[in-house]
Design a protein around this nucleic acid. Sequence first.
DNA 1: GCCAACGTTGGC
DNA 2: GCCAACGTTGGC
Length: 161
Amino acid sequence: MKWKDDMNYWLFKSEPDAFSIDDLANSANQTEHWDGIRNYQARNFLRDDVKLGDQVFIYHSSCKNVGIAGLAEVVKEGYVDHTQFDPEGKYYDPKSPQDNPRWYMVDVKLVKKFNAVLSLKDIKTMPEINEIGLVKKGHRLSIMPVQEPEFKQLLAACEAI
DNA sequence: GCCAACGTTGGC
DNA sequence: GCCAACGTTGGC
């Protein structure tokens, strides 16, 4: 991987029953828009801070094998999440003004699926990993920043499985 | 399915 | 602006 100075690192959670790393792998161009984020703090990250080329861990939550399943890259920066305006859709938000949409999304492209999931349990045993929200009590954000040193440590662990 | 920890809503 | 009630998240 090329490491750039201005690159940021993220972790996106997804319930694999709804959207898994394999779903991303099977998407057209292995690219998908990350819709359905309905939390303001996560929205702010998507709208303001997630930039082209940023690296993203894809994390499987609420499932049998909880942990980091793969790596993706941001290929489109924050834009309006159209699902908020679909009255039939799961993510419909009737209170979101058309002229000032509440919710944003980005597009991510698969970089690689790891040979196995790096489990949350294993992540918690890594002595170097102390800052990422995953290991902190009560941090439930579905879009969270990852500091570069921890990202590199986690990536190395994922690739070593 | 449980339940602790959060976030959001809405009456006042 | 407070805060109780309610809904959701997410590990276990």
